[in-house]
Design a protein around this nucleic acid. Sequence first.
RNA 1: GCCGAAGUGGUGGAAUUGGUAGACGCGCUGCGUUCAGGGCGCAGUGGGCGCAAGCCCGUGUGGGUUCGAGUCCCACCUUCGGCACCA
Length: 763
Amino acid sequence: MMFPYPSAEGLHVGNLFAFTGADIFGRFRRLQGFDVFEPMGFDAFGIHSENYALAVGTHPAKLIPRNIETFRRQLRRFGGMFDWRHELSTTDPAYYKWTQWLFLQLFKHGLAYRKRAAVNWCPACKTVLANEQVINGYCERHPDVKVEQRFLEQWFFAITRYAERLLDHLTYLDWSDSTVALQRNWIGRSEGAEIVFETPAGSPITVFTTRPDTVFGATYLVLAPEHPLVDALSGQEQRRVVREYQREVQGRDIVSRKVGDRTKTGVFIGSYARNPATGESIPIWIADYVLMEYGTGAIMAVPAHDKRDFEFATEFGLPIRQVVRVEGEALPVVSENGTLVNSAPFDGMPCAGAAREIVQWLERSGAARAQVQYRLHDWCISRQRYWGPPIPIIYCDACGPVAVPEADLPVELPFIEDFKPDDSGVSPLARHAEWYHVPCPRCGAPARRETDVSDTFLDSSWYFLRYPSTEFDDRPFDAGRTRTWLPVTTYIGGNEHAVLHLLYSRFITMVLHELGHLEFEEPFPKLRAHGLIVKDGAKMSKSRGNVVVPDAYVQKWGADTFRMYLMFLGPFQEGGDFRDEGITGIRRFLDKVWILGHEAAVARPGGLPPAVERKLHQTIRKVTDDTEALRYNTAIAAMMEYVNEMRNAECRMRNGVEPLLVMLAPYAPHLCEELWARLGHAKSIFVEGRWPAFDERLAAEEEVELVVQVNGKLRARLTVPRGVTQADAVARAQREASVRKFVDGKDVRKVVYVPDRLVNLVV
RNA sequence: GCCGAAGUGGUGGAAUUGGUAGACGCGCUGCGUUCAGGGCGCAGUGGGCGCAAGCCCGUGUGGGUUCGAGUCCCACCUUCGGCACCA
């Protein structure tokens, strides 16, 4: 299961829902005879803890152990089958030593690099803000201070080099469709072309487009305001306005820049480029709706066939030329199912074909080439914060960035009281010269540690690799242990991690595989996403005040009842609405099982009545299939039916109860363990119990109910021996008064017979 | 705007993948047990008409395919989740 972030509020129902679902599966597999390793750990670094510690005026290093203690207590209490010997916390130096090691592996192989990148900067806090801390362009803590963008040197991981592989592998991974869809979306593959627009100044502009078929309609170019060619291409007279616009854009935060419904702004930079298709000279503009980080940071604007370009052209009175026609559609025509017009030799061609041909045609003069773009960006792992693992790099004036020698790991996070952002304008560790002044590991000259820490998602990108090897301090993961237990056989978690955590883990695993540290390339061959528990139709959140705290429920009803209640709420993979009403139904059921178990302990031995035996085997079949598929709600319903059947038949036999206890044990481990002991077993049900096998012959009904339809409408139900012939079934059907009423005096034109199920007479 | 999921009784949800719609719970009604309440047990519980047998209607809306549609196809409506000036 995905390990939790140990919040100060304690385990919430969402955690418990997820962990129960995973725990049931683990216990089920164990009862089937598998070796099951169910580890647990804590994702305890990060801005969450840091902000919370700031808010309540304590230190995260004091806060986190308390929170973990609470989590541990709650996790033990709900009955997870955890192997506590392998517990881990990402804040433990013994753990993050290897997180830092991981960084160094990427650094040494050129997969970690430094780049200037925009961050949100609050001039009042004098610190970097996460995107979530920017509220409508203003600082979360200073509602009247506008957030700006600043450029800082930051560390990036080159995940985009793996974009194609990360996408391709999705076709064979056994993952929930919903998760695959989210991840595909996030990687965002677009096929298109790069097209080169020459300029008289001699600096050609390359643009990326997914619609090369519309190149004849490109009536101007737009560059991102930060585009490196802007300076060189700006005309003398426009230079001042261009600078002013660039400053204006930089003065805004990086969040609101990307809100699409703003009125478009931009300026003409005073020069022109040549459209390689038409040969025309077209104006070059800059505008903040073009982003430097996607494609080439420059676009060819085709206002007739792009909504944004259309708005921009309308705003600034730029020419709009239609080159694609779709029956009955007004401009802008965005559809790709049209025909070309005003496109010289390509007129009349459908868009799709024209796109290919135009790229080939332009390619001959070197003005274009087919190109695939990904939406995915490289992973920025720098955090100008305190509560994380220091990035293990030392800057030397002579040697540049130098890796901390592996023997010197971990670079421990020092305990500092003043971890709060203050007016000094630097990250907290950068205020501690005694910590960051170190000699260069290569030349020995005075040097300086990196004072940023790494992203929490780096901590969680490899924790599953650590679990089996927690006791080794000389290697991140032991080869033998890893071969036995990894990759993760079944990974269960929520779709809130569909992109970041699940993508980063896949990336890191791929890299470690490539560097020869792992035999497998994918960390989670099988992944199941569970649903969301909501309250009164809305996501639970502190601000809504609808957070359900599980402790009181466990206290009042017991862990087993609460576990089962959560699983009975709805399909595990869809989640459900939390409401107290249904919980009593589960409690009643468990009470019945409790009584049944005690009665079985003193019942006379003997064979089961045939009806009970049949129901038992049907139940085994259903509970096995449903548990396997994580359909816990219907598995529980099937066990309820079986208990009802036993009670109706007044059967209390041990051989009817024991298989039930084994099937129920993953769901209600405490109760079943107790009853198992009371039935005289010396060892735990999870040691001695074996998942029952079902016998298809015993599960089969001797008599079946046959539905009789006339023209598809239900007219009668007959009880017949299983396996009746069609002729027999039709004859029986035609004897029924309720059927004859609709058939007599008419010709039966057709008979549809579904064996043991239905007869349909068509008249 | 794009991607994904889902709309079924008073209610949470079932439905073997085209074959009895409403399993299993909750709630509600009646009866029993009890001085009483709770608990427990038994019976009933989609809507309409009917004394009844029974008949008609019914899975967001409208059309279609089929002997037969909650399930498949087309168009639409609504809700939820994700992404989003990504060219």
